[in-house]
Design a protein around this nucleic acid. Structure first.
Lengths: 199, 199
DNA sequence: TATTCCATGTAATTCGTTACATGATTCT
DNA sequence: AGAATCATGTAACGAATTACATGGAATA
């Protein structure tokens, strides 16, 4: 059975931040790997408790105010656990896209609806693409001496590439829709056949 | 709260197949939209029961053998429910990639490990890419008169585009790793800066 | 005859989101 | 003073996988 990744994300985030609270971990996840990962508070706080119980993390400060930030740092055992987990071959992703699913059943709506969802998706992808590009430049500038630089660049590059591809697809899908509305399946087939031969 | 998509996938699959059993639905999902959706039997069979109870699908045959195939067809109410769901704006996907996550924490393993996961990912993506391309050609040939052709082409095109992007990224990531192993961060930075300026 | 594949289904468990409760601090 | 934000946490619910049970049909 696939072991849940949550605990290890927390370990890694805490390590990257040297010492971190649940809130800070959440922020880091969103900022650095939000493109392909997320965690909710409902999982973070209980998991922190568990990790502390197992000695994989330890409180960073002693003065435990009742509702103050509780920062943790990673322990040697935590580092080992994280390292062991990383080395296990990752499970393949099983992506789920409600957008593509609904498009697949597009005939139950109408072309006008399809145009709307596609344009809005394209705009979102375009925005995400610029954000991803900025993230790349920032990584390059900020972590120039970091031993993790290669890995950071790899994953930010993944964000860039995938977002660009998504945007490209959305534009292509709109072209298909145009062709279809102009001249039905015949025009559509002409479009895709034509581009395939010219490529 | 986001409504679960499972029931509507089943409705759509049953409609596409005219009449279908749980097993056949599973097969269709895997074949046609496996790139971006999946359902397990543990969800399919209970959901079919529910849908039948609500009158959104109905048994296609009368002779109910005890452990034979139970085929269902969609009802008019089912078509309406599906149509209403499709028209609601889709929730944005929140993808999770264990591969990228582990790469992000790559410093807890070593470059040799990274090279392994990247090459294996690249090979898988390449395979998926050819499968996706075949799917595109097949859709084009088989459903030339189908009113859903535009939508089928759109989603198969999505599969093609995304798989190609993933492959491209994996190759790029390997280049980055090469540069890093050759000359550390300096060589790595030179690589990405150089390509950025020439592009 | 044994094994594999087709096929349906249930139960247990885990995972993950959402909603809620609480209170401190900072800004307007 | 009031609103927004920071911050931690719990409870309830729903979604999804996995394991298991069952048995017919085909095949080796």
């Amino acid at each position: 059975m696939r072991e849940a990744a949550t605990r290890y994300v927390l370990l890694g985030a805490i390590d990257a931040l040297k010492a971190a609270s649940g809130y800070e971990i959440k922020q880091l996840i969103q900022l650095a790997i939000g493109n392909f990962w997320n965690e909710s508070f409902g999982q973070i706080y209980p998991a922190l408790k568990d990790l502390a119980g197992e000695g994989l993390i330890a409180a960073a400060d002693e003065d435990i105010g009742p509702r103050e930030q509780r920062r943790f740092k990673i322990t040697e055992a935590g580092r080992e656990a994280l390292s062991a987990w990383v080395r296990k071959t990752p499970y393949p992703d099983r992506p789920r896209s409600e957008l593509l699913l609904k498009l697949f059943f597009g005939k139950f709506a109408d072309p006008k609806w399809a145009r709307e969802v596609l344009t809005s998706a394209r705009d979102q992808y375009a925005k995400a693409q610029t954000v991803a590009a900025m993230g790349f430049d920032q990584t390059l500038a900020e972590d120039a001496a970091d031993p993790s630089l290669v890995y950071y660049l790899m994953v930010t590059e993944a964000g860039r590439t995938i977002q660009a591809a998504r945007r490209q697809w959305a534009e292509r899908a709109l072209e298909m829709l145009d062709a279809f509305e102009r001249g039905g399946n015949a025009a559509l087939i002409a479009l895709v056949k034509n581009d395939a031969s010219s490529a």
